[in-house]
Design a protein around this nucleic acid. Structure first.
Length: 369
DNA sequence: CAAACGTGGGG
DNA sequence: TCCCCAAGTTT
């Protein structure tokens, strides 16, 4: 085991990112919110979301009581929307079970939805000054390189070893150390082309000594992404409003407002589907199928006008190809009654929680390019 | 325990 | 253009 705390903290004092918005406080609520937003997400992406969210919902009570649609609207574009729904559930638990205070033990903290071991440790260290080790992607990379760990980082045994290492190396000032190791990972010990000449740990780094910094951590080769296809319905009523459908909480884009979908094989209509379809052809048969399927499911008398050019959206685990079907309805009364279906003027729709590609589509509707 | 879960920036 | 992957957690 290689002691790194002392040079790390010295480096952090001089070169760390002390100006990050969530480093201006020791209040658990904003610290916790930042940790949730930063999960699998870059600092620069989080900043504007963090500021806006905190201005709108500045405390546990406000978040716990907010409409879910408001929470998701504040999260819209940030991705991994389970985090937003869990964050609100966590705020409700904090209010109901912890008297409005973030719990003060790891055991209790990890019972909060969306709060795992690393997030819990980060908050406890920063908010309460506890000696708690984190193990995020930055800390993991620094430990793997400094100790020249060849094993698969995903393997359970490796994870266990890394946690043991992290705990042993974390000093009393875990608050400072955790931030220091994260900054080192983000600024010096980066995934590709690490800047070893500038690294305060270079002299004691095993990977550097072996000339293997660039080769660690070992990375698994990724299989190609499966392709999925769907049609999105752009139905306009006589007032120029667009029909949106609220997605179920589970699954992709959970809880967001989306354009209604259809898959040309007649399969489940409310989910993004599926790899076995014929491509997104524009034939009379396809048009007829789409018009009938949507009319029946949405209980609308709609006329299909045109199929727009194919677009695509890439997710972590699959690639989505889609076309927008422009349609009009003469009477929008029926769909208004369903809780998961709503007509929106495009400008109002843009204030809702929307998936990024749907936001792009709606933004480009009127006068956009 | 492998897969699900978003999006955008950088090489 | 394409591939990588980021302050992980949940199922």
């Amino acid at each position: 085991m290689i002691p790194i705390a002392e040079p790390l903290l010295a480096w952090y004092t001089r070169h760390g990112r002390h100006d990050l918005p969530w480093r201006q406080t020791r209040d658990p609520y904003p610290l916790w919110l930042a940790e949730i937003m930063l999960q699998q997400t870059r600092v620069e992406s989080v900043k504007p979301y963090y500021t806006r969210f905190l201005q709108t919902l500045p405390a546990w009570r406000a978040l716990a009581a907010a409409p879910q649609d408001q929470v998701l609207a504040l999260w819209s574009g940030l991705g991994y929307y389970t985090r937003a729904r869990n964050a609100q559930r966590a705020a409700q638990v904090v209010m109901a079970s912890f008297a409005g205070h973030f719990p003060d033990t790891l055991e209790k903290a990890v019972t909060l939805p969306g709060v795992g071991r690393s997030t819990a440790a980060a908050v406890l260290a920063s908010a309460y000054g506890q000696r708690q080790a984190i193990l995020d992607a930055n800390a993991r990379r620094v430990l793997i390189r400094s100790h020249a760990i060849d094993a698969d980082p995903k393997a359970t045994a490796t994870q266990q070893w890394l946690w043991t290492l992290a705990s042993a190396l974390t000093p009393e000032d875990a608050h400072g150390y955790n931030q220091a190791i994260q900054d080192l990972g983000a600024m010096i010990c980066t995934p590709r082309q690490p800047r070893c000449p500038d690294c305060p740990l270079a002299s004691r780094c095993k990977a550097h000594a072996q000339g293997r910094s660039h080769a660690l951590p070992v990375t698994a080769h990724k299989p190609p992404k499966p392709q999925r296809h769907t049609f999105f319905l752009l139905a306009a009523d006589p007032e120029g409003r667009i029909l949106l459908e609220k997605r179920p909480d589970s699954g992709i884009w959970g809880g967001l407002w989306c354009l209604p979908q259809a898959a040309p094989d007649g399969g489940e209509l409310s989910i993004l589907c599926n790899d076995t379809l014929p491509p997104l052809e524009d034939t009379p048969a396809v048009r007829q199928f789409l018009q009938e399927a949507w009319s029946r499911r949405l209980r609308l008398d709609l006329q299909l006008l045109a199929l727009a050019e194919e677009q695509q959206h890439v997710f972590t685990h699959f690639q989505l190809r889609f076309r927008c079907a422009h349609a009009r309805v003469l009477d929008s009364a029926v769909a208004d009654s369903a809780a998961t279906l709503r007509w929106y003027h495009p400008a109002d729709a843009l204030t809702q929680g929307l998936p990024t590609p749907i936001r792009r589509i709606l933004r480009n509707l009127g006068g956009g390019r």
